[in-house]
Design a protein around this nucleic acid. Sequence first.
DNA 1: CGTGTAAGGAATTCTGACACG
DNA 2: CGTGTAAGGAATTCTGACACG
Lengths: 102, 102
Amino acid sequence: MNYKKKKVITIGVVCELTGLSERQVRYYEERQLVFPERSKGGTRKYSFLDIERLMEIAEKMADGMQTFEIKRMDKQRNATLREKMLKGQINAQFGQRATKRP
Amino acid sequence: MNYKKKKVITIGVVCELTGLSERQVRYYEERQLVFPERSKGGTRKYSFLDIERLMEIAEKMADGMQTFEIKRMDKQRNATLREKMLKGQINAQFGQRATKRP
DNA sequence: CGTGTAAGGAATTCTGACACG
DNA sequence: CGTGTAAGGAATTCTGACACG
């Protein structure tokens, strides 16, 4: 759908754009911080969103954060987002019913 | 700047997304219809915009158009665009001067 | 823990050419 | 003209391991 989310970029280009080494990029995958797709042959494919993600990670690593901490922060962030979306849905439901009972 | 214009995609992925063969994609480059960048090693890098362009080309080829005709149409289209932009600039100039002489 | 590196192999891409039509 | 293909080589990527700290 969106260009930003399409996994089409090889690791070499990712390294150029992020300034990270291949070793680092693969390690962050091992630590479950990024999730590239694979070609049939097995080469990794990243999206622009993954690249942004990796630059965030690089920044946090530079600040002395450890991979597991970054992952923990992510889980927390996602949980918060889910919560907000849930509340949004509930409000939407109430809104619909209200308008349907004039 | 823009994701759509960044040349980061290898020919293999381009072929998957467009349905074209490598031979076709390279040939359209030879005929000056697309202009990929190159890595230091010499591998071609395409943008999403290039991919859209290639899909347009594929459509025109399927309609029986020849490469030189496609290129000619492009020249014409660009010339028209340049003309419009020029007119736009002229209008902008007049607009500015008009507001500066009350 | 996070990263560099040498090792060997596999996947990917490149060019120039011959073929068909 | 537009495309397929086999050929040989080069660039790119992959994994698992050892090293350092």
